[in-house]
């Protein structure tokens, strides 16, 4: 997974969207993607698209998407906010989750609902957080 993220960041660097990749690697306990986004060194849309291309997971834009609040019975809101994910749809035991990163920790969902299959799609971090803010609106 880390190799995939690094490959996506390398894509961004080749595309001229990221200049300080070498400086930001190797900080323990932090995602390189978070650091890049917090320092505004990379656009979250471009990062999500690069992660999608490298991982093969679908990219999904969440602008104007209002999540179904009932889905947060399966994926608690505090987990969603912590892991930068947003549940989008539940079809036949398959929960589609938008995630800003490739490896969110969704173990609480897997432990409570072991029969669920989780489908991850990649979305820009800002749009994930914005969608979470729209719950109940």
């Amino acid at each position: 997974m880390i190799a995939t993220v690094e490959a996506a960041l390398e894509d961004l660097r080749h595309a001229g969207l990221l200049a300080l990749l070498d400086v930001l690697t190797g900080r323990p306990g932090e995602r390189a993607e978070d650091v890049l986004l917090d320092l505004k060194l990379v656009d979250d849309h471009a990062l999500a698209l690069a992660l999608s291309l490298r991982s093969g997971r679908p990219f999904r834009g969440l602008r104007d998407v209002s999540p179904d609040h009932r889905l947060f019975l399966y994926l608690p809101l505090h987990v969603a906010q912590r892991e930068r994910v947003c549940p989008l749809r539940l079809d036949d035991g398959r929960l589609t989750v938008a995630s800003a990163y490739l490896d969110p920790d969704l173990s609480p969902v897997r432990e409570r609902f072991p029969s669920f299959e989780l489908d991850l799609v990649v979305s820009p971090r800002a749009e994930v957080l914005e969608a979470l803010r729209r719950i109940g609106v």
Binding site: H45, L49, S52, L53, P58, F59, R60, G61, R63
Partner: peptide
């Protein structure tokens, strides 16, 4: 211009 999805 807004990229809504990218897949396959």
């Amino acid at each position: 211009v807004y990229l809504r999805t990218f897949e396959d």
